[in-house]
């Protein structure tokens, strides 16, 4: 009985989340985003280059379908990532506080469940919803790109794992903060951390391409930030896994941070980091009086 209760609470939380306007808005935004992306990519695929005699053919020759696919993915990727980051921050920061604020938490805890099960069952729902929505969004980007610019993705399994790593870091941070500070504050802090991590994640990629070129202080700050809040590694893993394996202009796109590989240890570290934050959040939750 106790074993099944956690699953029921989890499904209940999912149902509750799916009925929230913010999730519905994010889903509509994701569909609208994919619609616009489809429109843009289809237009790009049928565009004619108006240049001088012979130059158009040369330009078309330079740009293979894989390169076009790469350009499309790295343009759409950050926007999609911003949307999903915002979603998980908003729903992750409100899930537990709302259950507490609405007086439902004492009710759930009065059922014969352990606190850990209640914490995880309710807390995991935002991660699950965001993960599924991210898969749909990035999966949509991948399929639409494939239709117009056929290519072989670099590493699809990496996309699944990296996406989970990226979202888990953001989720674990916002869950913990929502138990410590007010939900608006937790949202702003994690959004700021995500933005800073993405910025320095890009710098980190460039430093990998040009080792020893960056000032020592900047290098130290960059390394500190990407390890202190390792969401960016997962996000880049998603993009890295999706991009075409046979694109020829990847080196020129180092600015977008898609050329370097993501070592598995970075993803493992991100998961462990999340686990630590999740544990601290649980310790806080376990000691809370309701």
């Amino acid at each position: 009985m106790i074993r099944n209760g956690g699953t029921i609470l989890f499904l209940n939380s999912i149902e509750q989340l799916l009925r929230r306007k913010i999730v519905l808005t994010a889903a509509i935004a994701a569909i609208a985003f994919l619609g616009l992306y489809w429109w843009g990519v289809s237009a790009a695929s049928s565009a004619e280059l108006h240049m001088g005699h012979g130059q158009a053919d040369m330009a078309v020759d330079m740009l293979s379908p894989a390169d076009a696919a790469l350009a499309a993915i790295i343009t759409a990727g950050p926007l999609a990532a911003t949307l999903m980051t915002a979603l998980i921050i908003v729903i992750g920061s409100t899930m537990l506080p709302e259950e507490i604020g609405q007086g439902r938490m004492p009710f759930w805890l009065s059922l014969p469940q352990t606190r850990l099960k209640v914490y995880l069952s309710i807390g995991l729902a935002p991660l699950a919803v965001s993960y599924v929505l991210s898969l749909i969004l990035f999966g949509g980007i991948f399929i639409i790109t494939m239709i117009y610019f056929p290519f072989t993705p670099k590493n699809i399994p990496l996309v699944f794992v990296s996406m989970l790593s990226w979202l888990t870091v953001v989720w674990a941070a916002v869950m913990l903060l929502s138990l410590v500070v007010k939900k608006i504050a937790s949202m702003l802090i994690v959004f700021f951390l995500s933005a800073v991590a993405t910025l320095f994640g890009g710098l980190y990629e460039m430093m990998q391409m040009f080792p020893g070129e960056a000032p020592k202080a900047l290098e130290t700050i960059t390394y500190t930030i990407i390890y202190a809040f390792p969401a960016d590694r997962g996000y880049r893993g998603v993009i890295y896994g999706l991009i075409p394996a046979d694109a020829v202009i990847t080196e020129n796109l180092a600015f977008f941070g898609v050329t370097a590989s993501i070592p598995s240890i970075h993803l493992i570290y991100a998961f462990l980091w999340s686990l630590v934050l999740l544990s601290i959040g649980y310790l806080k939750f376990r000691r809370m009086d309701f």
């Binding site: 029921i8 007086g103 439902r104 059922l111």
Partner: peptide, 27 residues
């Protein structure tokens, strides 16, 4: 053990039938 807190607010979309189904599964 059953507990009715003083100020519990169940989700506004939920019907008694839905809430009961969830509780029945847990209990």
């Amino acid at each position: 053990v059953r507990y009715l807190p003083e100020n519990v607010t169940f989700p506004s979309w939920a019907t008694p039938a839905i809430l009961f189904r969830q509780l029945e599964r847990i209990r």
